[in-house]
């Protein structure tokens, strides 16, 4: 009898909105619900991005030109900045992925009090403000920092200059990005059922075989997701390079801010931003493609 009532209700609702088919109605509702956030996206993201793209294509006289981009790739200091940033970004992303993967595998397959503790603690860096973390890194690894004191107390003689250059930035990038990568991957690894792994072991698969034949194929898409977000976060990073980065060559985020607020050269600053945007878009393209492929067409 409940079913009858529900059926009657459905009839009522579907005839009440006269004329419109269910599909059209859904389309309108869906678009209306997405509209406010998309409008906001247009105003605070898409419009500013288009402004920056336009600005990067204008020369000081307001004429259309590629002069800003030419400068970007011919000026020696700028070229060094680009190479420095790309090198740092790629190396940081790759090491982040490797260490994040190892951490995730450890958390997936190790049972015990120690792994339980790490499981509780590894989220923390994701939520720590960037300024605080960088400040902590300065106080830890600086010339008279905690590590230097520990090394001295343990009998070492001098502590090498460690932060304020490439290594310091690499360290900061790893600190910020490994937890996120490990989180994504450990969730993906949790999706691999124990029974599958056990049955693979039963038919004689060794650890290496298990890893390359089962674990890697089942997680490589997640690796791509982690790579995308790490890459995007690292290439445009600002806080850590601002506080512990070298003066030259600089990370592009800093170079961009300087050419804007010190040299008031909006064109060059925009060209740098657009250049980084293009690289991130390439990553984003592969990410979206792999996400869309997962689901058959229709959505």
């Amino acid at each position: 009898m409940n079913l009858d009532k529900a059926g009657a209700l459905r009839m009522k609702t579907s005839t009440a909105k006269s004329g419109l088919s269910r599909q059209t109605k859904d389309s309108i509702t869906g678009l209306l619900m997405v509209f406010p956030s998309f409008l906001l996206l247009v105003f605070i993201v898409i419009l500013p991005i288009s402004l920056a793209v336009r600005e990067s294509l204008l020369d000081p006289n307001g004429a259309l030109s590629l002069a800003n981009y030419k400068y970007l790739f011919t000026d020696k200091a700028m070229k060094n900045n680009i190479i420095f940033t790309l090198n740092l970004t790629v190396v940081s992303t790759v090491i982040t992925l490797i260490l994040g993967y190892i951490l995730a595998i450890y958390l997936r397959f190790s049972k015990g009090r120690i792994s339980e503790w790490i499981r509780k603690l590894y989220f923390i860096p994701m939520f720590i403000p960037a300024v605080i973390a960088t400040y902590g890194i300065i106080n830890m690894y600086g010339n008279h920092g905690w590590l230097a004191r520990i090394v001295l107390a343990l009998g070492g003689d001098s502590f090498p200059r460690f932060i304020y250059d490439y290594n310091g930035l690499l360290l900061a990038n790893l600190w910020f990005n490994i937890p996120f990568t490990a989180m994504l991957l450990s969730s993906a690894l949790a999706g691999i059922p124990n029974s599958l792994i056990e049955s693979a072991r039963d038919v004689g698969a060794g650890k290496l075989n298990l890893f390359t034949k089962f674990i890697v194929p089942m997680t490589y898409k997640t690796v791509l997701v982690a790579a995308t977000f790490s890459f995007m976060g690292i290439i445009g990073s600002f806080t850590a390079p601002f506080l512990i980065g070298p003066n030259a060559p600089q990370v592009l985020g800093i170079a961009m801010q300087q050419s804007f607020s010190i040299y008031h050269d909006v064109g060059i600053a925009s060209a740098m931003a657009v250049f980084m945007f293009l690289l991130c878009s390439a990553m984003g393209y592969f990410y979206i493609r792999s996400m869309v492929k997962e689901e058959p067409a229709g959505r």
């Binding site: 996206l41 993201v45 898409i46 500013p48 991005i49 402004l51 920056a52 600005e55 977000f229 995007m232 976060g233 290439i235 445009g236 600002f238 592009l252 985020g253 961009m256 801010q257 804007f260 909006v266 600053a269 925009s270 740098m272 931003a273 657009v274 980084m276 945007f277 991130c280 878009s281 990553m283 984003g284 990410y287 979206i288």
Partner: peptide, 14 residues
């Protein structure tokens, strides 16, 4: 995804 793809500093300036 655009909010993350464009470098933050450049986005803020624009």
């Amino acid at each position: 995804l655009l909010t993350n793809a464009f470098p933050k500093m450049g986005l803020y300036v624009s």
